[in-house]
């Protein structure tokens, strides 16, 4: 029982070699291939995910830039409109002021003219009244140049006093 049997050793060697070749092909080969495939697939998917994430990041940055631009534009437009409105308002106010001033001046002019005309009328009226009164008083007609001048001078004097 303790002797080495040449044929058994040889047979066992052959058995093991056959088993090794068989298992290498059908067990380890197949399973390792599957494992490797899976590892590769996972690697690929990781890479794809990474890529997609980078792309998404870029897109996000882009959008944010665009959004900021749009906001700036809107703000600029609002400020523009406000400025324009202000300017319009101011010019309108000025125009209105000018118009009112002009109207006032015209009115003042008219008033002054009317007053002057009235004064003239009154003055001539008063003069004729005075003349009539003087005629009545003197009962005669004053037609000499000298007297007329004298009355005028008097009236002027009165006018200045009144």
């Amino acid at each position: 029982m303790l002797e080495f049997q040449g044929s058994t050793i040889l047979f066992t060697l052959i058995n093991l070699v056959v088993l090794y070749l068989f298992l290498r092909k059908f067990l380890f080969g197949r399973v390792n291939a599957i494992l490797e495939q899976r590892a590769q697939k996972i690697q690929q998917e990781l890479e794809i995910a990474q890529q997609e994430r980078t792309e998404a990041q870029e897109l996000k940055v882009n959008y944010e830039q665009q959004l900021a631009q749009a906001r700036d534009e809107a703000e600029r437009m609002v400020a523009d409109a406000r400025l324009r409105g202000q300017r319009l308002y101011e010019s309108k106010v000025q125009e209105a002021q000018k118009a009112s001033q002009r109207i006032q001046k015209e009115a003042e002019g008219q008033i002054a003219q009317q007053r002057a005309e009235m004064l003239q009328g009154v003055r001539s009226e008063v003069a004729s009244l005075a003349l009539m009164a003087a005629e009545k008083v003197a009962c005669r007609q004053i037609d000499t140049q000298q007297e007329k001048a004298m009355i005028d001078a008097f009236l002027l004097e009165v006018g200045e006093h009144s």
Partner: peptide
């Protein structure tokens, strides 16, 4: 068990 045979284990040891 075949490993009870010293020739088999000798063969394994040889490998």
């Amino acid at each position: 068990p075949p490993t009870k045979d010293i020739s088999v284990t000798a063969s394994l040891a040889l490998i």
